[in-house]
Design a binder for these strands. Sequence first.
DNA 1: ATAATATATGAGTAAATACACATATTGGTG
DNA 2: CACCAATATGTGTATTTACTCATATATTAT
Lengths: 117, 117
Amino acid sequence: MIQAESDMLKKLAKFMKTIGDANRLKIIWVIGKEERSVSEIINETDLSQTLVSFHLKILRESDIVETKRIGAFIYYSLGNPELIDLLSACGEYVYRTTGEIEPGFIRPFPLWFNEKF
Amino acid sequence: MIQAESDMLKKLAKFMKTIGDANRLKIIWVIGKEERSVSEIINETDLSQTLVSFHLKILRESDIVETKRIGAFIYYSLGNPELIDLLSACGEYVYRTTGEIEPGFIRPFPLWFNEKF
DNA sequence: ATAATATATGAGTAAATACACATATTGGTG
DNA sequence: CACCAATATGTGTATTTACTCATATATTAT
C-alpha cells in the first residue's frame, strides 16, 4: 500500500472517528433538521451545557458544523448538508446488516430528514 | 429526543467508531478488493501480525468481515460489500468538504473499487 | 455599572482504545 | 510424533477520548 493511500485512509478514519460518537451524532441529528442555538441543542439532546460545548468545539474544528451569532445566541448548522445523506446511508447499512429491529425502531436519519434537500 | 432515536444513534456511533480507525480501514481496503488471508493482509498493510489479528477480531465481532478457513489459512472478506459503497461515499464527502488534494492524491475507495459490484 | 443569560474554555479525572510482547492454538508436513 | 507455519489470545501499558467542575467571556437588560 502506497503512502498516499495510507494518508487518505488516515484522513477518512479521522473523519469517521469524529462523527462516530453518540453524543455528537445526537447533536448532528438535532441541527441537521434545522439550525439550532446551543441552548436548543442542550434542551433537545439532554446533555449538559459543558458537554455540548465540548462536542461542538470538536465538530467546529472538523468543519462539520458552522456557526452564526445572533445577539447572545450562537446558531449551529451543518457545514455540508450532504452529511445527512451520508449518515442516512450509514444507518441503512447498519439496519440492513444487523437486521436488528426493536419495537419502536426508528431508522436513524430517516426519509423526512432529507425532504428539504 | 425519544429513547428509540437515542438508541439507534448509539448503534450508528458504535458502527462508525469501529470503522473509524486507520488500521482497520487499511484492512478493509485490502480485503475489499478481494478476500485475503491474514498473512496477505499483514504483507499489504505493513502491520504486525498481532496488530492485524487484534483488529480482525474487532471487525469479526462487529460482523464487518467474514472468515473462511482453507487449510492453515484463514481468508477474510467483507460481510457486506455495500460497505465499500459507504466508504466511497464517505471519501467523496471528505474530499469535497475539505478540498484538500495533495500531490499523488488518491481518493479512498476509488471507482475501480466498485467495478465488481 | 450590575446582574443575568448564553456560550466557551482550562484543568483534572476516569474510562476506552490501540498497541506490544509473550504465549497459545490450529493445521500441515516430514 | 515432532516441527513449522498461520493465526489467535491474554496481559500489561501508554495514549486518547469523553466527561465533570469550576471559571471565563460575551451579550443583553435593568
